[in-house]
Design a protein around this nucleic acid. Structure first.
Length: 557
RNA sequence: UGACCCAUGGUGUAAUUGGCAACACAGCUGGUUUUGGUCCAGCCAUUCUAGGUUCGAGUCCUAGUGGGUCAACCA
């Protein structure tokens, strides 16, 4: 198969099956989300794994919605999930499938099991069943309803389907072994009565299969070869296989891998939903969310996310990935594609006293030094500019390469300037204006001045500057493992400074034509993208991720 | 006080299935640079512990230790 490159353990298992001819050389995987929330980066790992397997071995991958619990599921989620998978760049086989498409078949499977004497209707309450189940260290006991006749079970199960009984009054269980050390084999529930409107089947059904009697059966119906899921389902495997054996259906094989955990975030859909509902964030696609839609809005690219998923690998041990690895993947991709532009986040005015008033010249600038084909554009340069407030120091240390009294610095793609003077608010100590002279023979590309300038600053011409709103993001949680403090609620670790809004920023005029989905690098400041909140009279930019900043790092120490 | 799974640098993943512990990220040095970005070079591990098998163990065996999962009419 594949020779030199190392395989993950799932691929190794798949290749073994390919060699043994177990599935006639077929590889057919599936990605089975429940439509009860938006997809997150953990799902991205699963998507990349499942669709990656399909692509790598010339097979196919189904998208199947595991929609067997109508009370939490909704078509809004179906739509968002489809969009996210496509955006990541994957294509599922045929139309999307739904477990709910198989409700008739599943009902028939259940009847088949009853006829074999392998399933029975239990009239016990949920509490009674739980009690009879025992504990991990104590065996369970048989239900008094366990030995009903096949005929009675058939009649009762049909009654359940026909809505003759109340919700929760009866349940269909598999008859396996109440003393099994594996709790899941202690007569697991198969079908419950639940009068709820399903997002696709409406009110047709009042009984719905549970996970263990839907998932594996759906795999079999679709003739899935490798059913890849996360570690929590390990204990379900014997049950998964028991049903296959009893029903004599397609023998799909379940393989479990360790789910992704990311520092400073949570991956639980339930908790993410809570953040949305309680308005701790502005929706599922809030750029601080670990959702695919949030990351998209934040400016992460599909390639960045896929590369990240490649890098983290697939194994069986619990893992916590450092956020820095995700950010590396984002920078790595954006560095190649992002157009370099200028934006001043915290402006201070710079006046070039020896530059003619009213004059404007267009200076040339590279769109992307990493991409020779990206071309160049021009930017207006004039007497009054905005520069970054933090690029000036009244009394700078030796290693500060930026502007200070009598210091030289180059204005990127423009001229070298020498600072001559500055104004300061006597009350606040804030610098209000900086004055300098420029050296006309130092123009970028035709510099004959011989002047040295260690620092290079970005800038925007005041007259043409476009005022914009800038949104800066930080980790949503200040704790590396917000969900891992059993006694404390994860929301206690929400980072109060995860969103910072800047309302006095300016960007170069070319950004008036910025489009949604475009990636920009604001030089020396990071990667940015236009936010959908933008309107014609107000542009909003999200900072996707900052640039690596060894100067800031050095100063922190 | 059960069953099952897992254990390799700060993090994650490898190691031709018993043959010199590799790659990436992070960190630290230095170089290049009209982005303190990118890029380039260098540094950073006696594989949880203790026994055993073997010429040879990260890999096999035994025992321990540590972590995870399992008792929803959720998936």
């Amino acid at each position: 198969m594949s020779n030199k490159e190392s395989l993950n353990f799932v691929e190794i298992e798949v290749e073994k099956d390919l060699e043994s001819g177990r599935y006639d050389g077929r590889v057919h995987t599936r990605f089975p989300p429940e439509p009860n929330g938006y997809l997150h980066i953990g799902h991205a790992k699963s998507i990349c794994l499942n669709f990656g397997l399909g692509e790598k071995y010339g097979g196919k991958t189904n998208l199947r919605f595991d929609d067997t619990n109508p009370v939490t599921e909704d078509t809004e989620y179906v739509d968002s999930i489809k969009k996210d998978i496509q955006w990541l760049g994957f294509e599922w086989d045929n139309e999307a499938y739904f477990a709910s498409d198989y409700f008739d078949k599943l009902y028939e499977f259940a009847v088949r099991l009853i006829k074999k004497g392998k399933a029975y209707v239990d009239d016990s309450s949920a509490e009674e069943i739980a009690k009879m189940k025992g504990t991990p260290t104590e065996p369970g006991v048989n239900s008094p309803y366990r030995d009903r006749s096949v005929e009675e079970n058939l009649r009762l199960f049909e009654g359940m389907k026909n809505g003759e009984y109340e919700d929760g009054s009866r349940i269909l269980r598999a008859k396996i072994d109440m003393e099994s050390p594996n709790m899941l084999l202690r007569d697991p529930n198969m079908y419950r009565i639940k009068r709820a409107t399903h997002h696709r089947t409406g009110d047709k059904w009042c009984i719905y299969p549970l996970y263990d009697f839907a998932h594996g059966q759906s795999d079999a119906i679709e003739e899935i070869t490798h059913s890849v899921c996360t570690l929590e389902f390990k204990h379900h495997r014997p049950l998964y296989e028991w049903f296959i054996e009893q029903l004599e259906i397609y023998p799909s094989r379940q393989i479990e891998f360790a789910r992704l955990n990311l520092e400073n975030t949570i991956m639980s859909k339930r908790k993410l939903l809570q953040l949305v509902n309680e308005k701790h964030v502005n929706g599922w696609d809030d750029p601080r969310m670990p959702t695919i839609s949030g990351m998209r809005r934040r400016g992460y690219s599909p390639a960045a996310i896929r590369n990240f998923c490649d890098r983290i690998g697939v194994a069986k041990r619990d893992n916590v990935i450092e956020f820095a690895l995700l950010e590396f993947s984002v920078r790595e991709d954006l560095n190649k594609v992002a157009k370099r532009v200028m934006g001043v986040l915290n402006p201070v005015k710079l006046v070039i006293t020896n530059y003619p008033e009213g004059k404007t010249e267009e200076v040339d600038i590279d769109n992307n030094p990493e991409d020779p084909n990206a071309g160049t554009r021009t930017m207006p340069f004039s007497r009054e500019l905005y520069i970054e407030r933090e690029d000036f120091m009244e009394d700078p240390p030796r290693k500060f390469f930026r502007l200070g009294p009598e210091r030289n610095v180059r204005l990127k793609s423009g001229y070298i300037i020498t600072c001559t003077d500055f104004d300061k608010d006597p009350e606040t100590g804030e610098i209000t204006e900086i004055r300098c002279i420029y050296h006309p023979d130092s123009k970028s590309g035709q510099d004959t001045s011989g002047i040295k300038a260690k620092g290079v600053l970005h800038w925007v011409s005041v007259e043409q500057a476009v005022p914009v709103e800038i949104r800066l993001y930080d980790r949503l949680f200040s704790d590396p493992n917000p969900g891992g403090h059993g006694d404390k609620d994860f929301k206690e670790f929400l980072n109060p400074d995860s969103l910072e809004i800047l309302n006095t920023a300016f960007v170069e005029p070319s950004l008036k034509d910025a489009e949604l989905g475009e990636h920009f690098q604001f030089m020396r400041k990071g990667y940015f993208c236009l936010d959908p909140d933008s309107s014609d009279d107000k542009l909003v930019f999200n900072r996707t991720v900052g640039l690596r900043d060894s100067w800031a790092k050095k100063n922190k120490k």
